[in-house]
Design a protein around this nucleic acid. Structure first.
Lengths: 108, 108
DNA sequence: GATCTATTTGGCAAAATAGCCAAGCAGTTT
DNA sequence: AAACTGCTTGGCTATTTTGCCAAATAGATC
């Protein structure tokens, strides 16, 4: 692997963000946080996995720069760090209808 | 794992797109294709991996709906299927400067 | 029709990721 | 200060992803 051209820091940052969103539980968390911050226990209830698993997902997303957290009282609240995500996801959702043509190989 | 709420087809589609972009070689391919279509051998030269590896990356991206391909003459040309990607990536790149605060835990 | 060219597919080993349990930890309440 | 609350970390196994090689394929050229 010999990835020239783009600044590698930029590339790594972008890939980290994509990885942070490339999992059903994490995508659901991101979607949910678009309507405002939530504490870890809320997100655990949403995802339905072990608390430790959810915590690890959140750490990953925070380290990628997708989420920010803040401690208030007993709870830790997470929220989205960037607003551009919603726009992108809505665009992707609209892409879905014409998917059949995209999924097939051009050699079929 | 018990992911309620969002239509699961939408969730799966979104996750597939994110996975398709969550790899340095594939992100580089996506970035490159923003300036127009390229054939597989061009992309192999860019990425610097085995041809079969690049081909598998391209298949993954096509199946996720990120790329479309077309055969012309001896070559197969790949291009981006959606234009919204560029906007999102530029937004992410601008996010980078304030990353330090995002990466740290709120409990530090 | 044999050969060449561009690309895909199969198969496998190595590396990365996911998720559970148990244990740790920092504030809070008693 | 003991016990509780909300969350994170360590450790482990199971699953998924990655990337190479070798083999297959489809169309172009000889």
């Amino acid at each position: 692997m010999q990835l020239t051209q783009m600044p590698s820091a930029t590339l790594r940052q972008r890939v980290a963000v994509m990885k942070a969103l490339a999992h059903p539980s994490r995508m659901l968390i991101a979607e949910t946080l678009m309507s405002g911050e939530k504490c870890v226990c809320d997100l655990q209830a949403l995802v339905g996995a072990d608390m430790s698993t959810v915590s690890k997902h959140l750490t990953l997303m925070r380290q990628a720069g997708v989420l920010v957290c803040e401690k208030r009282g007993l709870n830790i609240y997470y929220r989205l760090a960037c607003s551009c995500l919603g726009t992108f996801l809505r665009c992707l959702d609209e892409l879905t209808p014409n998917m059949e043509s995209c999924r097939s190989s051009c050699c079929d």
